[in-house]
Design a protein around this nucleic acid. Structure first.
Length: 245
DNA sequence: AACGGCAGCAACCGCCTGTTT
DNA sequence: GAAACAGGCGGTTGCTGCCGT
């Protein structure tokens, strides 16, 4: 016993939505709410599948949607949530008010993924790609990263939350470190950084306010600055390409 | 100006899950 | 417990506009 199709496909219009269809859907939902998507097209006078109506509403017509590019903080949040949750776009989207799973999925596939690859980070595992793909190796900092013995190479900065910010003072130091590196310790640093990141995220996730998404972003913005700096370093040092395309 | 390639994004498809009968 | 149903999710497709040649 297979499932019946959600709608009669022969009588259903596909493809882009017209302004008129949008108007019909908006006015219907504003008047009647969005319960029972199966009946929406019929009652709203649309030759569309209920699923299609739901998608159009949630991804495009909803009044609370934010349009446009993600802010750096939102983007960073997406990256961290993806590291934690994987391709669970709806869960990720639920942490970013005004953003849809489809939008985030698209942004991930078109922008963020490429950026991570450029930075030498595997967008699937969030681990560094093959060492040779990096123009320098953070492992040069050695395994005693946070104790930071080598001030020539990095600087430890505490911020309000007490995280440690690792910043290369100059690229030549980083490159030199890279060339003299014997390899094998880089994952230790990155995993160390990652643990910090995940810890922060855990804390944030535990205190997610119900509707005040902007608060999440702003709180996160402050606590993830070090990671953004980390990205900048990678962007500057790596292959001469800037982080932003 | 014309063409081809590419990137971005809206929308579709099929599967999964939870709920109802 | 099984079937039917509705909603939700993630992967994929295809259209459109932009850019370089």
């Amino acid at each position: 016993m297979g499932r019946q199709p959600c709608c009669d496909k022969l009588r259903v219009k596909k493809g882009s939505w017209s302004a008129e269809e949008d108007d019909k859907l908006i006015s219907f939902i504003l008047k009647n709410g969005n319960c029972c998507w199966r009946t929406v097209p019929k009652l709203a006078g649309l030759m569309r599948c209920g699923k299609s109506c739901r998608l159009r509403w949630t991804n495009y017509l909803r009044p609370d949607l934010k349009r446009g590019l993600l802010s750096p903080a939102e983007e960073q949040l997406v990256i961290d949530l993806h590291a934690r949750l994987g391709n669970r776009w709806s869960k990720i989207a639920s942490m970013l008010p005004g953003r849809t799973d489809n939008e985030i999925k698209n942004l991930w596939n078109t922008h963020i993924k490429k950026k991570l690859i450029k930075m030498g980070i595997d967008p699937v595992t969030h681990q560094p790609l093959h060492e040779r793909q990096l123009n320098f190796q953070l492992s040069s900092v050695t395994t005693t990263t946070t104790e930071s013995k080598s001030d020539e190479q990095l600087q430890a900065q505490g911020n309000e939350e007490g995280q440690v910010q690792l910043i290369f003072k100059n690229t030549s130091a980083a490159e030199e470190a890279s060339s003299s590196n014997t390899g094998g310790t880089e994952p230790i640093l990155t995993s160390c950084l990652w643990e910090d990141s995940m810890q922060l995220l855990d804390e944030l996730l535990l205190q997610v306010p119900s509707n005040d998404g902007d608060q999440i972003i702003s709180e996160f913005e402050g606590s993830c600055e070090w990671l953004l700096d980390f990205q900048d370093v990678l962007g500057d040092v790596g292959s001469g390409n800037s982080f932003d395309e």
